[in-house]
Design a binder for these strands. Structure first.
Lengths: 140, 140
DNA sequence: AAATAAACGCAACAATGTTGCAGTTATTGT
DNA sequence: ACAATAACTGCAACATTGTTGCGTTTATTT
């Protein structure tokens, strides 16, 4: 577990002005190593058993990381949040893809649609959340 | 509760080949009368107390109505499903708007974006789910 | 009016996430 | 290096939303 992601994770956390605890570093390292957005459950499974990490601590660490903009939270139709480390491209709004068979979830490129959406009069636009559903390469 | 929506609801249900029970009719009538997509909880509140309706029955009725395409289910970031009666325009995919303050949720016009989305090679497109977030007229 | 499949109500369960609080720990200042 | 302290953690208990199994009731058909 003490790989490049760990080092990066620790730097990012310190840079954000929070305490660099083992839990936060480990969690962020896992998310940095991952190509897809993964669930709380999946993070738990990847987390080394030896180190122990409470469910609640995981939830709180994720919340903190999201608040510091180091990761982002993705809504899904299965009522489960998925998390993904932020890269440069994620600082902007982007779409997500979800496989309807295996539930894999990846980030797509920036939103090619205009940010101003035709809303009813008096409504104010804030952001767009877009999920494309289909089959991933493995499930096709 | 025995208004025009009740009559319409009953017709729609019979036309779909299901048993026209008080629960289904009442639920569909509520959804037909509503401009926005509402939650299971909100349906329960609008349902006349005198008539009693079990939580489970409500869930099952909603599932059935969605299966028959009389209503549709909307995903939201608060992990709660919202339901809305289908009109002609809803037979096509459409976007939803959600107020970030009062959680009101309405349907927007058809998706103006092309159905084929730039996916990675080997991926297959199925559908798009799009939610615009912002403030509704009341909350602005 | 009886027969019957469909729908319902209840109880119990499952999954995901949250809150309160006492104990532990990373960091800061000396 | 050490003590002080705010920040973080772990546990237990809870909340919310939705699901399953099963015996009972009911809308529809004949």
């Amino acid at each position: 577990m003490f790989n490049e992601f760990h080092t990066t994770a620790e730097e990012l956390i310190r840079h954000s002005g929070g305490r660099a605890t083992a839990g936060r570093i480990g969690i962020l390292a896992i998310l940095l190593a991952e190509q897809q957005a993964i669930t709380h459950r999946e993070i738990e499974q990847r987390y080394p058993e030896a180190l122990q990490l409470d469910r609640v601590t995981l939830y709180r660490a994720l919340e903190w990381l999201a608040g510091k903009n180091l990761i982002h939270k993705v809504t899904s139709d299965d009522r489960v949040w998925r998390y993904h480390a932020n890269r440069e491209l994620h600082s902007h709004q982007h779409a997500h893809f979800k496989c309807t068979r295996c539930a894999q979830m990846i980030c797509l490129s920036d939103l090619p649609i205009d940010q101003s959406w035709p809303l009813p009069i008096g409504y104010r636009f804030q952001e767009i959340e877009l999920t494309v559903k289909g089959l991933c390469a493995d499930c096709c």
